[in-house]
């Protein structure tokens, strides 16, 4: 397993995880802006024609990416070039089962390894269907990162944790990306419950947009994931997105990194 992910969560402070969709805008420049702003982990979205778990912001990002002609090969090129520019920053691919498995799981895992990808989040492969992708990823040293949600109860949690690696992604609301915000109290309870059950770092995402929100979550979680707010900047600023991306990431990173320092 690559050490990059583990290192990102072992700096004695909460980590900021930043998501953008691959092939939407100048992805290389946008990713560099996230790193320059202080992102600890990069999540690169693989566009899919039918993103069932995504709200309008990421749906639109997928459409823009397809309109620009993005193919799976482009995604791996983007990932590989990122790895060459940023040898230490962990990179996670996030997407859906069909593009990940269409050429066979071994092919996908091999491409991930070649491109220096550290982990994979597949939205629609639950633990019950792990055989579809998990074994190939593990064999290639790539972390299968699983999602826990408000509907993952105590009885089910061990099923989710078994075979999880990298970090545990807590989806704080039952819903799609970019919509609601979860109540802080419910997040705190859930993170406490998850941390009691696993040694994996717990990162919280879905509905996190502002530095204030991120800081509140970072007080209890090991990581905070921000996606749609960044994707919105790419939508609004197009080729000029790197500046605004760096600015928002900088504010988020400052808030997250300092969240547990005594005020």
């Amino acid at each position: 397993m690559t050490a990059r992910l583990a290192n990102a969560f072992a700096r004695g402070r909460p980590a900021l995880v930043c998501f953008i969709t691959g092939g939407d805008g100048d992805t290389a420049a946008n990713l560099d802006a996230l790193v320059a702003g202080g992102a600890d982990v990069i999540e690169l979205g693989m566009p899919f024609t039918d993103p069932m778990a995504d709200g309008p912001a990421i749906q639109q990002a997928n459409l823009r990416s397809f309109a620009a002609g993005t193919k799976t090969a482009d995604l791996f090129r983007i990932a590989g070039e990122f790895r060459a520019r940023h040898p230490e920053v962990p990179l996670v691919l996030m997407g859906y089962a069909n593009p990940m498995t269409i050429r066979g799981p071994e092919w996908f895992a091999r491409e991930c390894a070649k491109a220096g990808v550290d982990g994979v989040i597949c939205v629609d492969i639950p633990p019950e269907e792990d055989a579809e992708l998990g074994p190939a990823l593990r064999a290639a040293g790539i972390a299968p990162i699983r999602l826990a949600t408000p509907t993952t109860d105590a009885a089910r949690l061990p099923v989710v944790l078994d075979g999880s690696a990298g970090f545990l992604y807590y989806v704080s609301v039952a819903g799609i990306t970019g919509m609601q915000q979860a109540a802080q109290g419910s997040i705190e309870d859930a993170v406490a419950r998850l941390k009691a059950a696993t040694d994996l770092p717990v990162a919280v995402g879905f509905g996190v947009r502002t530095p204030d929100q991120a800081a509140r979550i970072a007080r209890v979680a090991d990581g905070v994931v921000v996606g749609s707010a960044l994707v919105d900047l790419v939508a609004r600023h197009g080729a000029d997105a790197p500046g605004p991306l760096r600015e928002l990431t900088g504010a988020l990173a400052a808030a997250v990194h300092a969240a547990r320092e005594v005020a």
Binding site: M52, A53, A97, V123, D124, I125, P126, E128, E129, E132, R146, L147, A148, T149, P150, T151, T152, D153, R156, V160, V171, A174, G175
Partner: peptide, 20 residues
């Protein structure tokens, strides 16, 4: 019992839906 018809079928859904 896992919902497979040979290599077809299954339960490829987001975790939120799985318990349901």
């Amino acid at each position: 019992e896992r919902g497979h018809f040979g290599r077809f079928g299954g339960r490829y859904v987001a975790e939120t839906l799985m318990p349901l």
